[in-house]
Amino acid sequence: MTIEESAAQSSPTRAYGTGREALLAAAIRVVAKRGLRHLTYRAVAEEAGVTHGLVTYHFGTREALLAEALHYSLDRSVPGLSDAPGSGRIESLFTGLTNLVESEPDTQAFQYELILESRRNPTMRPLVRELYDAYRSTLRAELAAAGLDGDALTHLVFAALDGLVFQQICAVNDVPTDSALEQLRQILATMRDRARQSSGDD
């Protein structure tokens, strides 16, 4: 089974048992700390403190483990885009993002490892596409609710968020992420107000 097939077969309403969730969290930590090429049943088992047979039992293939780990990481990350989903309140956008990255840096590092590996391994690209699509579709819905729509704007805002998160986990920027996010919210609010004004003038 390919990675793409594993991703396609994952349930859209995912439920993780306690033991399964612990294995997914362990897989994310392994990739975040050691890179994707070190993701093995044995490495995950050692990280989780279980036998590697248990990892095999739950996931069957490395591809299935990786696909589920991605979904698990998205379930933990995507809600960080807004603390009031669907409200249209720009002031609610990205407010918990900095704390999310601080509390779960391995989750973000895991996703970046997938992205980098996809440059070397084309079979990884469907997972990376799924990763970006999940963020972009949620972000586009939030922007649309605020009266700001369009693929180009969604791409631009997501690129800014993606870069800020990457710089935060790598600790390479002296400007606090929260300050940059506040500037981004102000830009979006200005765009929204101008759009409303323009619409009113018509």
Rank of each mutant, 00 (worst) to 15 (best):
Q9T: 15
L148E: 10
N99G: 12
A141K: 00
L65G: 08
H58N: 09
E4R: 05
P122E: 12
T51R: 01
L36D: 04
S87C: 07
A145R: 03
I3K: 06
R120K: 08
E104P: 03
D193Q: 15
H52K: 10
Y112K: 07
Q197S: 11
R89I: 11
L116Q: 11
S137H: 14
A8Q: 07
S92N: 13
G49S: 12
G80H: 01
P126F: 07
E47Q: 15
M191C: 09
A180P: 03
L188T: 10
H58G: 01
D162C: 00
R136A: 12
P79R: 00
T138G: 02
D193K: 10
T56D: 00
V50W: 02
S92K: 07
A69M: 06
E182Y: 03
D133Y: 00
S92W: 02
N173C: 12
L93E: 15
R120A: 15
T190M: 06
E142M: 04
L164S: 05
E21H: 00
A141D: 12
T107I: 07
T190Q: 06
A152R: 04
H38T: 12
R129E: 14
D178V: 13
A15S: 09
V157H: 02
D162F: 04
R136Y: 09
L184G: 03
D149E: 13
L153K: 05
L139Q: 06
D75T: 08
D162L: 06
E46K: 04
R119F: 15
L148Q: 04
E130P: 03
L97E: 05
L148S: 09
G19D: 12
N173T: 12
T2Q: 07
T13R: 09
Q197H: 13
S10Q: 14
P12T: 09
A32T: 10
L100Y: 02
R34D: 15
D75S: 08
G35L: 04
E4L: 04
T2V: 01
T51V: 11
L39Y: 05
K33R: 08
V55R: 03
S118G: 10
L116A: 13
L24C: 15
A45V: 14
S103G: 06
T95R: 14
G163S: 11
P176V: 12
T2P: 15
V101Q: 01
I28Q: 05
R20S: 07
G17W: 08
E142C: 06
T95N: 05
I115T: 15
I90P: 13
E102Q: 08
A109V: 08
Q183T: 07
G80I: 03
